[in-house]
Every structure is written in structure tokens, then in C-alpha cells.
Design a protein around this nucleic acid. Sequence first.
DNA 1: GTTCCGCATGAATCGATAG
DNA 2: ACTATCGATTCATGCGGAA
Lengths: 292, 292
Amino acid sequence: MKINTEIYLGDSKEVLKKLPDNSVDLIFTSPPYADQRKSTYGGIHPDKYVSWFLPISKELLRVLKPDGTFGLNIKEKVVNGERSTYVMELIIEMRKQGWLWTEEFIWHKKNCFPGKWPNRFRDAWERLLQFNKDKKFNMYQEEVMVPMGDWAKSRLKNLSETDKIRDESKVGSGFGKNISNWVDRDMAYPTNVLHLATECNNKKHSAAFPEGLPEWFMKLFTKEGDMILDPFMGSGTTNFVASRMKRNSIGIEIVPEYYEMVKSQINPVELYLFESEAKYEKVKLNGRVPIR
Amino acid sequence: MKINTEIYLGDSKEVLKKLPDNSVDLIFTSPPYADQRKSTYGGIHPDKYVSWFLPISKELLRVLKPDGTFGLNIKEKVVNGERSTYVMELIIEMRKQGWLWTEEFIWHKKNCFPGKWPNRFRDAWERLLQFNKDKKFNMYQEEVMVPMGDWAKSRLKNLSETDKIRDESKVGSGFGKNISNWVDRDMAYPTNVLHLATECNNKKHSAAFPEGLPEWFMKLFTKEGDMILDPFMGSGTTNFVASRMKRNSIGIEIVPEYYEMVKSQINPVELYLFESEAKYEKVKLNGRVPIR
DNA sequence: GTTCCGCATGAATCGATAG
DNA sequence: ACTATCGATTCATGCGGAA
């Protein structure tokens, strides 16, 4: 299996025009958040955020396949003691463009930034907006099932006997059905609230989101060999995760420093041999973690 | 201490006009959700939700004290496979009325309704929108502090070094602070994500929210003897909790059956004797729980 | 090789100070 | 008056060194 990772330096609004219609299975990104400070990288003023984003989302609508999904990680800032409304406005305007606002997942940041203020608590969540082109879209729910809670533990105690029997039958039949039954016993479908800690270990490049975030969306909305796009690549988290999970991906970044950094670390073409998949994947992962 | 609980039968839009300006410390409510089926109780069509709500929120703005808070529990329904945008539109329109949208808390429903759909997961969260009249409002953060995590344990052992340094720096500025800092060691301020299970004990009347929800807001935004308003009383949860916590309250309900039910259970005037407060409160609570 | 503990750090926010 | 910068505040997490 050949996996391509293609990255571009430039403004998404322009670069996206090069991509063909209906060619992407999943768009996952975290755009630069609105910022009052104009000098900062990516600092778009809250008042101009929607008009800045709409031309890009229009192109994204074009390149996304009809059964694809657009996952948008975003959270409004506090301005003058009030939450800004640009995310609300963005949702409303994107619907006018033709997007369907299917769902809003919540990313609960277990280790949010500390602080104390007289009139507000710490902000421990961000939005994960799911947009679609069509009511029918690909969704592989089984891929993101989670282990059951305490219920599973009490079950596991009594399993020792049953366990072996099922194991034998699994081996005996050699078919997947038993396995899936097995899995279903201990696994449950998740809700629309994701509990993930932000990554705070990496000194060199602080990713906007932990790898678990794009990983969860990729599992849920794509399969191996699919095409994933991140129009605001940043430190390349989406693309690295895509490569690791055997998905083709495209990344676009406007800041040369970020672009060069990702370019020096990414492998444009990865060959995954069918027989040594697991091993190869592990080696790649181990080799890459310390770099970032 | 005398605590009054006043309930009205009628349409909030009209009944609210009887209340004086700047007389309420906290408004907490969960309005009837939008519903396509018009026959349902409180079923307001999604398209008309905002225009239905705005005249009411205008009155709420009038009756709220300048340093008061409006807490709104709401969540948009799925219509035709898409999340409706009436909550977004409502926030934008309420700001035009003069409301400040201070914060959006998330109520994470730990035990959300079970179910499985091909294109979406279970909905495990609701919005808790905080609106204010003024940037300055009453907030009693200490009242809702929560025990610290494991971190506190390891910290208590090594208090010697860092804490002495911090102490010295603070001794210079003031006295009372030191004590409160020491006491607070075990407690931390919460975040804007609330983890509460929905109540599933009461079969007779399913409240829209668990008692913990209004309780948390009352602790945070009011003190004993304050005035609390719920313009969509429903089964009266807000008012019962207010009474138990020694807050005056007003409830408005348009459905006679609900009104009568609450009327039969609530005590319009409760006398809390200063010296036997705790005991008296406990008795009242015990007597009421089984009824609802 | 485990387990334990110390430590840096993270899409933050407010209020005061400075231009 | 209005905007930009800075310091103070504060806690869950996971890594790395130590026992």
C-alpha cells in the first residue's frame, strides 16, 4: 500500500483552487483562532473572522467528496469580558454556502490552562463542529468504540471460564464474526463528548490539538487509503497521524517556518508492506516521536 | 429568616410585566425546547423559536438586577439530520437586546439517554448559557470549589520550600490572605464543564434538569435571601431548590397541571429560625423528597 | 523493570501600565 | 479615549530521573 503526504506552502484560499472537485474524504483542521493582536501569526481580528473564513470554506465544500466530512476544531475567545459570536455567525453563514451542520462534538480538555479571574472560571472545552455536504456520509462507528466502564470490570472477573471457550471457538471458526461479537460485549459506542488532555510534553512545537483528536475523526470518518486534508497544517499533526494510520493527506501552511519544519520530518511516500504492517508502523512511530 | 416562594399561572410574556424593574438576582430556567410537532406541550417550531423567545428575554432583562445573572439551559434539536441554528440566532439576537453573553458552560450528562443511530452518537451535553446585564456581576466562586485531584496529596508533603517563599511575598501585602490560602490548599476552582448525571429516580415528573444544576448556579451567583426567577417553572425544580437553599423565588408556568402540582407541594412562606437552621432545613428536605 | 515523585508547560484571562 | 504589552494567577498531565 502506498501512502502519499503532500504539503503546500501558501494561502489556503489560493492553494485549494488547485485541488480537484470531490477529491477529499475528510477535512480536519483547527484554524488560527481570532485574536485582537494583529501582529501575531494568524491573528485575525474577531470582527473579520467570518469574512476571512468563508472564501476558504467555499473551496473546502468544492473539494470534499459528497460522502465526506469536515471536522472543525474551534473556540471563541473572550473579548471585553464577553464571548465573541464569530463562531455562531460562521455556522450560520456556512449553512448558507450549502454546508450541513450535522453535529457539534465537545472536546473536554481535562488539563486546561490554569488561572483565576473574578468573573469567570477556566475554559475546559472546545468545539468540534461536524459539517457535511450531504445527509448521507461515511461513518465507521465500530472503529471508535470504547471500553465499557466499571460494568466491564465486574464482567471481566467472571470471564476466565467463558473466555477460553470463546477463544477456542474463535480460532476454530476462523471468521471475524465471533470477534466482533466479542468486541461488542466489552465495548460501547462513544457519545458526542470527547475527553482528551492537551499535549504538554513537547517543547519544540506545541501542536494545537493532541494526536488523539484527528485520530478519532479519521477512524470514524475514513478508511485506509482515503484522502485527508488540513488547510491549516500548523505543526502537521493531522498529516503525521494520517500517515501513521495509512491515509493519504494534504497539508497547507502559510508560514514558511512551519512548512519547512513539517517538510523536513514528513516522508512524502510511505510504502506499507501488507505482511509486516504492524511492525513497520510501530518502528515509524517510535522513530518520529522524539523528533517532534 | 423568611423565605417566600411565589408561583404564577400564565404566559411568561404577560406575567413578567407585573414584576418590578431590577428586582431579581438570578434567573435560571430551561425553556420548552423547539419541536416540530406542534401538538406537544411547549412545542415551539424551530423556525419561530427566536421570535417567540425574544419578547420574554426582553422582560427578563428588565427585571434582572444590574449585578444579576441569567442562566439558560438549552440545546438545539436535530431536524432533518442537522442541528438547528436557533440557539445561535438567539444568542446573537439577545446581544442586540442588550444582553452580554458572558460564558457558555457545558453540562456533561454522564448518563445520557441510550440509543444508536447510523449517522450520529448519543447526545451527552447541553448548553448552560450565562448572560449578564453588566460586566460587573455578583459571583461567589468560593461557594462551588471542588476538592483537588491527586495532586494535592503529593503537595501537602513538600510544603516546606515553595510555600514559605509564597507566604513571605504575601505577608507583605496582607494578613487575611494567608489563612485563606492555607485553607484553600485542598480545594480548586471548577472549570466551565459541569459533570452531572441526569436524575432518573423520579417517575412521576421528569424534571428538565437535576437539582444539582440550579443548585450550582445559585451557590455561584446568589446568597441567602436573594431573589431567583424561573419563567418556565415546569415541575418546579428551581423553586424547590431555592427554598431549600434559603433563597426567595418566583416561578411562572403556563400549563395548569404543572402549576397545580407545584402549588400543592410548595410552601409559600418558610420561616428559618436562625439557631436551628440546619436541623429545620434537613427535616423539610427529608419530607419533600419522596413527594416529587 | 516497576513505581514514585518532581517539574515544566499549555489556543488563557484580567487588570494595570505604558504608548 | 483607545490600543498594545506585561505580570500574576493557577492546575492536570506526562515525561524523565530516582529509589
